[in-house]
């Protein structure tokens, strides 16, 4: 399976471990990533704050470079923010004709053109759960993550905005990462804040605001007795990992929750060495919790199927599928 690949700036810096682990698992899973040549920054959340058309043109240059007869139609971004910007530009250029026209006028000045919709912009996790599939992935698990309690943390931009029903998973309560972690053998906690904000760029602008948002996530994960949070976005990882010490100091808390990428978890379950997955580069060390892998844990009793005579509880609503 061939894909265009847009790593984004973070994966060359703060999110190196994401890049390393993505590359490490790609081959064994049969994924070929062709990096977009000479790609540029997507503008993060900043460019749009100062210039609109230029912000779309900045992103569109990447789309123009990635598109082409001989190039893969699917463009994969591991970073949720890059994914959003690429996806949104792809969508808005088609939906808002004048915006699309202006953006292409700007591209033309650089000798480029992009026909909106000619690429499918996809997040890395979408490719892994839908193209590789849970079954194929499960078959490759040699070191199940049994015993690890994992809080799956999706963040915002993988699932929002919806862009006319184009969201990869539910915008409020996605489940793909949950199921993926279950496939790897981990014990998944039903993390209520799974799509809440990590603070985004507020760590730079108003640290107090950001620290509180980070605290909520760590607090809730700790309440659920999670061993670690698994993420799929460089900004989420950075805010929760790199600022955890500050949060502890500033708010008088005592969290020690490692934040790993889902690609690192896949690699671990496939039996790869932690070092090959850049585990160890996180600020809050995952070493101690990872010792749990492989250790036997007691299997919980199967849930009661028969109602007890004195059970007065009312049935839970049956949720319709789909």
């Amino acid at each position: 399976m061939r894909y265009g690949y847009y790593p984004g700036c973070s994966l060359t810096g703060t999110a190196r471990p994401y890049e390393v682990s993505t590359k490490a698992i790609a081959g064994p899973l049969g994924l070929t990533f062709e990096e977009v040549e000479d790609w540029n920054c997507c503008g993060a959340t900043e460019y749009m704050s100062l210039n609109k058309t230029a912000a779309y043109a900045l992103v569109a240059r990447n789309l123009a470079l990635a598109a082409g007869e001989d190039k893969p139609k699917d463009l994969v971004a591991p970073c949720s923010l890059c994914y959003l910007n690429l996806r949104k530009t792809n969508h808005y250029m088609a939906k808002y004709k004048s915006l699309g026209k202006m953006t292409n006028q700007a591209l033309a000045a650089g000798g480029l053109h992009y026909t909106p919709g000619s690429l499918n912009v996809r997040h890395l996790i979408d490719v892994i759960v839908n193209d590789v599939g849970y079954e194929a992935l499960g078959a490759r698990v040699t070191r199940p993550l049994t015993g690890l309690r994992v809080a799956p943390y999706y963040g915002c931009l993988l699932v929002r905005p919806d862009l006319n029903g184009g969201s990869f998973d539910d915008t409020e309560y996605p489940t793909h990462l949950d199921r993926l972690m279950e496939t790897l053998g981990a014990e998944v906690v039903d993390f209520p804040l799974k799509t809440h904000c990590c603070g985004g760029h507020m760590t730079q602008i108003s640290a107090e605001t950001a620290y509180e948002l980070i605290r909520r996530l760590l607090h809730n994960a700790a309440e659920y007795r999670a061993d670690l949070l698994v993420t799929l976005c460089p900004m989420c990882q950075f805010n929760l990992d790199a600022y955890q010490t500050q949060v502890n100091r500033h708010l008088g808390t005592d969290f020690h929750l490692p934040i790993l990428y889902f690609t690192q978890m896949i690699g671990l379950a496939m039996g790869m060495e932690p070092k090959a997955l850049a585990i160890g580069q996180e600020i809050v060390s995952a070493a101690s919790v990872l010792r749990k892998i492989g250790t036997a844990v007691e299997v919980e009793e199967a849930p009661q199927t028969r109602r007890k005579r004195d059970d007065k509880s009312l049935p839970m609503p049956r949720i319709r599928e789909g």
Binding site: D170, E172, Y173, D190, M316, P317, R318, I319, R320
Partner: peptide, 22 residues
């Protein structure tokens, strides 16, 4: 209306969220 379609209200997940008919 199937209240589960608005997941942020927790119906079907949070036990003590009820519909009007319930």
């Amino acid at each position: 209306f199937d209240c589960g379609k608005i997941p942020q209200y927790g119906y079907g997940r949070l036990a003590n969220v009820f519909t009007s008919l319930e």
